[in-house]
Write a protein that binds this DNA or RNA. Structure first.
Length: 193
DNA sequence: ACATGGATGCTT
DNA sequence: AGCATCCATGTC
């Protein structure tokens, strides 16, 4: 388990790159569902027009982003799905890393059951797919990844080749939409389409 | 290419 | 209290 506070207190961009290759573990009814993080995006806070905290916006939903790195920011999108972020950086610097895709590692059968799908390739290759597969919803809002328990990180694989690109689906972000703040393991088949 | 879906956070 | 928006997905 990755417990060191210093790991989570890094800035969003650094943390987004370092999370590639780490394992995300979800403990559920004694099972340990595990996936390797293969795709992330950095959301850089008050100066990032793509961020939920652009301009220092602080609401009931986004308040957790102002807390210390290592907590979980879950929000509902399009009324249907959930998205998972890891809060980055020090208290009152509202940056986060959006987890976009996993490679399934352990308890794959349980993940298929949670998604009610059997296709391995489409099990966790998208931000809300992985939330379904790991049963991540807003009951985990603000959960501390350093605590261990329901949701935590583990050291996984050292990834040799990491690619970057603009972030997905942030057309509203004006000049910040072109920043190369999406990272993924080059060639990994579980990166989202 | 398009329907889905509802909380969130705007504006009035 | 009304309304446009949204860090997707599945099926068309």
């Amino acid at each position: 388990m990755i417990k060191a506070k210093s790991f989570y207190l890094q800035d969003g961009l650094t943390l987004a790159k370092k999370l590639i290759g780490k394992y995300l573990v979800r403990k559920l009814n004694g099972h340990e569902l595990k996936g390797k993080i293969v795709e992330t995006e950095a959301y850089m806070g008050i100066n990032d027009k793509g961020s939920h905290t652009y301009g220092g916006k602080r609401t009931e939903r986004t308040k957790i982003l102002y807390a210390e790195g290592g907590l979980v920011y879950v929000y509902r999108i399009y009324g249907i799905y959930f998205c998972l972020n890891v809060v980055a950086n020090h208290k009152s610097i509202p940056q986060a890393v959006f987890i976009r895709a996993l490679e399934p590692i352990d308890e794959i059968a349980t993940m298929k059951q949670n998604r009610n799908k059997t296709d391995l390739k489409n099990l966790t290759n998208g931000p809300s797919k992985l939330c379904q597969a790991l049963k991540i919803d807003n009951t985990l809002y603000g959960y501390d990844l350093r605590k261990g328990g329901k949701l935590y990180l583990e050291n996984g694989e050292r990834i040799k080749n990491i690619s970057s690109s603009p972030r997905i689906n942030i057309d509203y972000a004006e000049e910040d939409k072109d920043n190369l703040w999406r990272f993924y393991e080059t060639g990994n088949p579980y990166v989202s389409g």
